[in-house]
Design a protein around this nucleic acid. Structure first.
Lengths: 175, 175
DNA sequence: AGTAAGTGGGTGCAAAATCAACTAAATATG
DNA sequence: CATATTTAGTTGATTTTGCACCCACTTACT
């Protein structure tokens, strides 16, 4: 149900097609959520028949018709309701930590490899986030909306950086 | 399918019942994964009919019979296979970041409340992790297995600590 | 001219995860 | 004495997610 709220949030910024929503998920939302195309279209349909959004078909000259989804007042209310609702702090799930937890079953060199591979990937993710942040840095402090959006990216950056430090510590002290 | 591997990992440490597995998930695994009771029992059944585990019914005097699950060689192989497999770095999902991302829809005081409530919860989670770590600290450096298990807890601690810092920064600079 | 990539929208299916209840006996707590 | 909690496991229904396809048309690349 988080996905439904996130979509409402995006529709709150501007009316959009499922296709555009997917692009937003892949570009600006990817540091804290990801969503499958099919899931997006299905959730959109649900939002419409719950009355949280409406659809308008907009014809285009060259490209396919846009099924433009607009948030309704009920949708806006649902969004605000979710936003102020203390969200149960669901346990973060990290498959990689599962691997580390049981990695003692592996020979030493495989453990080292597991960790250093992860380090490379984490660094790559961090670099990606850092380059994303470059495009917004200046104007971020300006209005509250941009500030908060940028803040979530900063969070992701801090998390990745903390993981790098942790990886280095583990690799150094592993008996 | 991460759950299946995690269960295999635990069965690799000792034969166990579904009930005991659930307790392990709630106590020592909770900082990076959580699992529903029903899901554990169903996954156990799958493991058995894939040949990754076997069941032995052990009668007890006062309590219900134990369905003790033992890992097989095939199971151990499957576990090791997963452990050394570079696991696709699935995007971490964090509903709270979704709330922050769209929090500008809320009045200022509600945003402050959202953040400070989160701060309290994060601090509580951190304290829980810190107290968990106290029980293992000394012997952790000893063998590799304990070290790695403790390391995942350290990771969670670092993540929570980083989040606290981030929350403070956001609360301080929010326009 | 042919092939890829982009725009836009879907369907079908299976696995994974969640919620809620239900059984049943023992032991601990008030 | 009554009520919770612990031990142990199970069932059903529903949701969420992921993967793999499919359509049709347009623009860009080579």
């Amino acid at each position: 149900m988080v996905l439904a709220r996130l979509i409402l949030g995006l529709l709150c910024l501007a009316p959009m097609t499922g296709y555009e929503l997917k692009k937003h998920f892949d570009s600006s939302i990817n540091h804290f959520w990801n969503a499958d195309k099919a899931q997006i279209y299905r959730t959109l349909a649900q939002l419409v028949d719950k009355g949280y959004a409406t659809v308008t078909t907009v014809a285009q000259s060259n490209y396919p018709d846009r099924q433009e989804h607009h948030i309704t007042d009920a949708g806006r209310q649902a969004l605000v309701g979710w936003l102020s609702d203390g969200a149960a702090q669901g346990t973060e799930r990290d498959p990689f930590m599962g691997q580390v937890f049981f990695a003692a079953e592996l020979p030493r060199e495989d453990i080292d490899q597991l960790l250093s591979e992860r380090r490379v990937k984490t660094q790559a993710v961090l670099d990606d986030y850092l380059s994303q942040r470059e495009g917004i840095d200046m104007r971020a402090a300006a209005d509250r909306r941009s500030f908060l959006m940028a803040a979530t990216l900063d969070h992701a950056i801090r998390q990745q950086a903390a993981e790098l430090e942790w990886l280095d510590a583990v690799m150094e002290h592993l008996p």
